[in-house]
Simulated assay, not measured.
Amino acid sequence: TRDVIEEFISIKGIPLKIIDTAGIRETDDLVEKIGVEKTKEMLEEADLVLFMLDATTGIQQEDRLIAGLVSGKTGFILINKTDLRPEIDLGSINGLAEGLGPVKISLRTGVGLEELKEKIVQKVMAGQVDVGEGVMVTNVRHRNALVEARDSLQEVLNTLAMGMPTDCMAIDLRSAWEKLGEISGETLGEDVIDRIFSEFCIGK
Score class of each variant (00 low, 15 high):
residue 24 I to H: 03
residue 71 S to K: 04
residue 95 G to R: 09
residue 3 D to T: 08
residue 91 G to N: 03
residue 38 K to G: 06
residue 102 P to H: 01
residue 158 N to E: 15
residue 88 I to F: 02
residue 20 D to S: 04
residue 155 E to F: 15
residue 186 E to V: 05
residue 119 K to T: 06
residue 55 A to V: 07
residue 117 K to H: 05
residue 95 G to I: 08
residue 193 I to G: 08
residue 86 P to L: 11
residue 183 I to W: 06
residue 49 V to S: 01
residue 46 A to S: 11
residue 92 S to P: 02
residue 101 G to K: 07
residue 192 V to E: 11
residue 21 T to V: 09
residue 78 L to V: 05
residue 156 V to M: 13
residue 94 N to S: 12
residue 200 F to T: 07
residue 174 R to V: 14
residue 87 E to C: 03
residue 85 R to N: 07
residue 37 E to T: 03
residue 98 E to R: 13
residue 79 I to A: 06
residue 193 I to A: 11
residue 66 I to A: 08
residue 32 E to F: 13
residue 44 E to G: 04
residue 38 K to D: 11
residue 116 L to M: 06
residue 156 V to I: 14
residue 31 V to L: 15
residue 70 V to A: 07
residue 89 D to G: 01
residue 200 F to P: 00
residue 152 S to I: 07
residue 145 A to K: 07
residue 155 E to G: 13
residue 90 L to M: 12
residue 17 K to V: 11
residue 88 I to C: 01
residue 26 E to I: 12
residue 15 P to Q: 06
residue 48 L to M: 12
residue 143 R to L: 15
residue 120 I to A: 03
residue 130 D to T: 04
residue 196 I to L: 08
residue 53 L to W: 06
residue 177 W to G: 00
residue 73 K to H: 14
residue 14 I to P: 02
residue 186 E to H: 02
residue 135 V to D: 00
residue 34 I to W: 13
residue 202 I to N: 02
residue 27 T to N: 08
residue 29 D to V: 09
residue 183 I to Q: 02
residue 8 F to W: 13
residue 50 L to H: 03
residue 7 E to C: 12
residue 171 I to W: 08
residue 32 E to T: 15
residue 62 E to L: 04
residue 5 I to F: 11
residue 182 E to N: 14
residue 128 Q to Y: 06
residue 22 A to K: 09
residue 5 I to W: 12
residue 128 Q to N: 07
residue 61 Q to N: 14
residue 165 P to F: 10
residue 193 I to M: 13
residue 185 G to P: 07
residue 66 I to V: 15
residue 183 I to A: 04
residue 83 D to T: 00
residue 183 I to K: 05
residue 156 V to H: 05
residue 167 D to C: 08
residue 79 I to N: 03
residue 194 D to N: 14
residue 199 E to L: 14
residue 52 M to Y: 02
residue 2 R to N: 12
residue 100 L to F: 01
residue 179 K to Q: 08
residue 167 D to T: 05
residue 94 N to Q: 14
residue 139 N to P: 03
residue 137 V to Y: 09
residue 151 D to Q: 15
